[in-house]
């Protein structure tokens, strides 16, 4: 974007936008932070407690269906936006979703600095660390090391691909289906699909981890 038209602000595509209520919450928060009544880190801790309680978190159902239904999986590979919409889930800003598939040979991981490009309606709430510039640069330079810090150690032979969200494209990682889940219902499978698995900083949970 080298600026022959940089005086024409409306020619520039706006990547970010706050609704009035989003701006109002930011306003109240920033004013209280400045007055020393709120520590942003304390807010992050509280918000993180609700990781699984924000948004419809449709992604887990999308993954579970892809695991169970080969025809759906094929459509999800072909056109993820349409396949996700099939389940009645559409992005707020009509974002374009792309699915990237983990295989025995390849692991996918998504980075983003969290402007407005995080598809929270699909994935749920973004993790706090996800928006930190150091995470982004380290994930690109040393994805294996970053994954190890999250407790995910992958075989040396497994390739790691790192995807950087753009203003137009958001990625959904389709984790590998855990062994021992043959015959499970989609609902049960969806419980194995965590947010971290769908951004590639984790794997799907094992059946033993959700034993009731």
């Amino acid at each position: 974007m080298s600026g022959h038209d940089h005086h024409h602000h409306h020619d520039h595509e706006h990547d970010n936008h706050f609704t009035p209520i989003e701006a109002r919450v930011r306003a109240l928060e920033s004013l209280m932070v400045e007055k020393g009544y709120v520590d942003p880190a304390a807010l992050d801790v509280i918000i993180d407690t609700y990781e699984t309680k924000v948004g419809p978190r449709n992604g887990a159902r999308v993954v579970a269906k892809a695991w169970s239904d080969p025809a759906y999986a094929a459509r999800l590979k072909q056109d993820a936006t349409a396949a996700i919409a099939e389940l009645g889930y559409t992005g707020r800003q009509g974002e374009h979703m792309v699915s990237v598939w983990n295989t025995p040979d390849e692991h996918n991981m998504v980075v983003c600095t969290l402007c407005s490009c995080y598809p929270w309606s699909v994935l749920g709430l973004p993790p706090v660390w996800y928006k930190s510039p150091p995470y982004r640069s380290r994930a690109v330079i040393d994805p294996r090391g970053v994954l190890a810090e999250f407790g995910v150690t992958l075989p040396e032979a497994k390739r790691i691909r790192v995807w950087d969200s753009t203003a137009e494209i958001r990625y959904l990682v389709i984790p590998e289906r855990p062994a021992g889940t043959e015959g499970w219902s989609e609902e049960r499978l969806a419980d194995l699909v965590t947010r971290d698995a769908m951004i590639g900083t984790g794997l799907a949970r094992q059946p033993a981890e959700v034993a009731a």
């Binding site: 919450v25 209280m32 709120v38 520590d39 304390a42 509280i46 973004p126």
Partner: peptide, 26 residues
């Protein structure tokens, strides 16, 4: 069953802000 749920991220942010202000005795 576990507690509050939020339709959008800003709601969780507003919730957390009230919790934090209350914890701080404001």
């Amino acid at each position: 069953a576990d507690g509050p749920v939020f339709a959008e991220p800003w709601q969780a942010q507003a919730f957390a802000l009230v919790v934090a202000l209350q914890n701080k005795g404001v």
